[in-house]
Simulated assay, not measured.
Amino acid sequence: MTLAHDVGGTGPGVLLLHSTASDRRQWDPQLPALVDAGYRVVRCDLRGYGETPMPDGPYDNARDVLELLDQLGVERTALVASSGGGRVALEIAARWPDRVASLALLCTALDGHEPSPELLAFGEREEALLEAGDVAGATELNVDTWLPHADEATREWLRRMQRNAFEVQLAAVEEVERIRVPYDLADITAPSLLVAGADDFADFREIAVRLAELLPDARHLELDRVGHLPNMERPDEVNRLLLDFLRETFPA
């Protein structure tokens, strides 16, 4: 199955992977900036998000993305990813290092991370709301949690994406498992940019610090007055950071 996606521009490839609270529309502010800078930009909806349906059997997000790149003829790409999309990006960069030219991760998740009590409490509250049939309440919990400094237009933008993700996933007939393929972060060769939000959960700030110590040629920075989705709360600043990083590591 081909992931729902769109492509803009020409030049070196840049693949955008969204968070698990959104879909490919998360990258609306970045798409024109990257295209204007001379990149061919691909953004896709992972399984169960946006316009991509839930899988009907065990699935491998990283393999799905690689197959999309193959279909589009993208031999080598920069990966720009947010939150849960960052976990997929790290797996791709480790399993197929020759396909990844550079890696920019915004508040990334990480396989094997032990969640803090605060993050566990958030997950339990979300699950309780969904089990009670309160999709609107679960959606609002995510908006309040992930965008602490956003204006109402930005909150509504995330609200639409998160509500859609819940509806797609809750409509699935049965739960299916993600295929877990062993991989080693030490196999990553791409230079990386690790961005954290000062007002995000401590988990994601700690993951950024840990990855900065593990990954080759890694740079780490933390943005003040930013929560979990900096590209939505501070799009202009994030665009500058991404373009500076890409011009240095994978120039158009």
Score class of each variant (00 low, 15 high):
2 T>R: 15
3 L>F: 09
5 H>T: 09
7 V>W: 09
8 G>N: 15
9 G>K: 05
15 L>T: 14
17 L>V: 14
22 S>M: 04
22 S>C: 02
23 D>W: 04
29 P>W: 07
29 P>A: 09
32 P>T: 08
33 A>K: 02
35 V>E: 12
41 V>R: 12
42 V>F: 00
42 V>G: 01
46 L>H: 01
48 G>P: 00
49 Y>N: 06
52 T>G: 06
53 P>G: 14
54 M>C: 13
57 G>N: 12
60 D>P: 05
64 D>C: 02
65 V>K: 07
66 L>R: 15
66 L>G: 11
70 D>E: 08
73 G>L: 08
79 L>D: 06
80 V>L: 04
81 A>G: 02
82 S>D: 12
89 A>D: 01
92 I>T: 07
97 P>Y: 09
98 D>W: 11
100 V>E: 06
102 S>G: 15
104 A>I: 00
107 C>V: 14
108 T>L: 02
112 G>I: 03
114 E>Q: 15
117 P>F: 07
121 A>E: 03
122 F>V: 00
123 G>V: 00
124 E>W: 08
128 A>L: 06
133 G>K: 03
135 V>E: 00
136 A>V: 05
142 N>T: 08
144 D>L: 13
148 P>Y: 09
150 A>I: 10
153 A>Q: 14
154 T>D: 04
155 R>D: 02
155 R>I: 05
158 L>P: 01
162 Q>E: 10
167 E>L: 14
170 L>E: 00
172 A>T: 06
173 V>G: 04
185 L>R: 04
185 L>V: 10
194 L>H: 01
194 L>A: 07
197 G>R: 00
203 D>H: 03
205 R>P: 15
208 A>V: 06
209 V>A: 05
212 A>K: 01
214 L>H: 13
215 L>S: 12
216 P>C: 12
217 D>V: 08
220 H>M: 10
220 H>N: 08
223 L>R: 08
228 H>R: 09
229 L>E: 12
232 M>A: 10
237 E>V: 14
241 L>R: 00
250 F>A: 15
252 A>G: 15
